[in-house]
Nucleic acid binder design. Structure first.
Lengths: 197, 197, 197, 197
DNA sequence: AATGAATGAGTCTTCATTCAT
DNA sequence: TATGAATGAAGACTCATTCAT
């Protein structure tokens, strides 16, 4: 018996130990799920996803024991992107500008995917992998916040998770409006995070 | 048909023209629905509510043709309270303090009832009665915002509906945390609404 | 206590012993029911009829214990018209022409009201009043058939109830087509009733 | 997925491509439905049928999305028999006798199954398969009618669909009587279809 | 491993009928 | 008598999940 694990798969976010066809199925399922979510359908009906992905329901269940597992898998992908951005931002020359850019990037991801937004703002309860990614994000974000605090543009008492949550709040606000208010609301948040006058 | 309308019922927010027993049932249904929502169950299953209220399903359907009608009826109650507060606040001596008080009050209502929160931040689409109440709220809120703007504590370009939406954003942020951050997040919002430095 | 019975009401097909307002209600209900049926709605939902008639459901139930009673009441009205025509036809100069005219008239009534058609073709089971009217119709029809039989245009072995049933069959045939075949199908029936060659 | 299609299933009117167990369920459901209809119950409640067939409701819905699909499936079976008879009849030596036999056969089917009768007389609106079968029937019937017309026993202006409809009319007439009149009414129809004198 | 048929609890919804007012 | 609110049995339909193939 061959082992299919390994270097290549691991690097590209694939689950280790998957036969190539299984990996392909997994990828298809995630792809379809992502499209559904982007298309505004949040119900993530596993039967539907299976059909769209061209696989049986059973296959979906094999890869994702329940709906939540699927949502988390999607989130992990988003988180991967986000952590990368956060790391880049944390070494920006102007920390306030780095922060603004990072929050805008995060906001757009969240506007794209409600489920990701809710994982982003939630306090634990998720699988290990998600927690890990969230911790990595918070770490980079904390660096940025500390630097900005030193520069006097962030008030004290605000932690990385506060920022995550408030940003998801902004996401809701933007979403419930016509979408034109993204910059305005983001500006309100950034101004609100400064030390009070 | 006899008319059961009148003095007493009208005063307490009951529908006019309802037979006393019908009014009692309606009140029971709303009561149960309110408890469900407060208890975190948002599904508002009409069967369940009927059973809990001790009435037949048909009775629930008679009073509330669909789930949305029930949600709105609950919202209208909340709105009634809220509009009253908003009117009082709009004539507060210090508009900024009036605003802070009103937003805190609103935030607490929204934290109590997710459905109410979503009606509060939504852009139209609801029944006439709800739209009316929302308009009344916005009117009182606009007065307050204008006064605060004159006093230099609110930036230009912010309307009543922006405030409603941003506040619901704060509600999400508070809810996704441990609830201890209410004052902090509210402070961030109020600071963010000030003219930018 | 006054009795509201009597001569006038009895003559015009009203139920005897009804208070004038009750009679008015009864008439309204029948009127609405007739319109519903003519409009193609055969379900005769008593709640709906009550609403359209501007009376309570209970009132409908007082006058017509169940749906069937209402259907029959409508039929009785139709029968009254029909019996009158049948009597006139039975003394027509040319019995075959009289028969054709009568069948055409009956066919149109039946096309207008499916329920009436089914009472027309049914074998008993109805209330006394309906049976009576049907007997009167059959009597007039039998006279016509006998006269036509003497003239050689009706085969032997065909009774009035056969003709009623076959005519309702034609009604179904016409109804399931585009309505353009009324005369053709009626012609087929009349030809078929002649003595076989 | 393995394909279970094939030789055996195809021959016996089963849907192709069905797993053997699925085919068994489908057959059971149809069997039960047929019995219900034959027993005079026309409501075809899918819940009841599921229970009687010993399968879950979902299974019934999988095979037949709605009541109509089930009715049509039953009809298709009847049509299959009927088309076979019609083909045989269309090449009968004496076309009039062939026609009589075919109509008698059809009448018995229709008397057995009201739903089939209504599909038989209806003008389109059904699924492709039903339309096809009806077209095949009409074709064979048309051949027979043309031959009989040449022999002088069928009037001009009568098409296959007229005959289908009129026969269903006869079915109603027979059904509303005591059933003893089948031959008489069929005779009336056949006589009526001859060229008028 | 993959498949998708089967399951059936759970919900929604309608409407004939009753009965308190 | 009239009213119409209330009832709740009944039926339609969905979908997460299991499991035989």
């Amino acid at each position: 018996m061959r082992a299919y694990a390994g270097n290549v798969a691991a690097r590209s976010g694939q689950r280790a130990g998957l036969r190539p066809d299984a990996a392909r199925n997994r990828a298809r399922i995630l792809q379809v799920a992502r499209e559904q979510v982007a298309g505004g359908d949040n119900s993530l009906q596993l039967n539907l996803i299976a059909r769209l992905a061209g696989v049986g329901v059973g296959t979906v269940y094999r890869h994702f024991p329940d709906r939540h597992a699927l949502i988390e898998a999607l989130s992990v992908e988003r988180f991967r992107e986000l952590v990368e951005q956060a790391r880049a931002a944390s070494s920006a020359e102007d920390p306030q500008e780095g922060l603004r850019g990072l929050l805008r990037f995060t906001l757009d991801l969240a506007l794209d995917d409600t489920d990701f937004a809710s994982v982003l703002s939630s306090a634990g309860g998720e699988r290990a992998q998600t927690s890990e990614m969230k911790a990595e994000l918070d770490e980079a974000l904390a660096v940025l916040l500390d630097r900005a605090r030193l520069a006097g543009t962030i008030r004290s008492g605000i932690e990385a998770d506060d920022v995550r949550r408030l940003l998801c709040g902004v996401e809701h606000a933007v979403r419930s409006g016509d979408g034109e208010r993204r910059e305005l609301y983001l500006g309100v948040l950034l101004e609100g995070l400064r030390p009070p006058r």
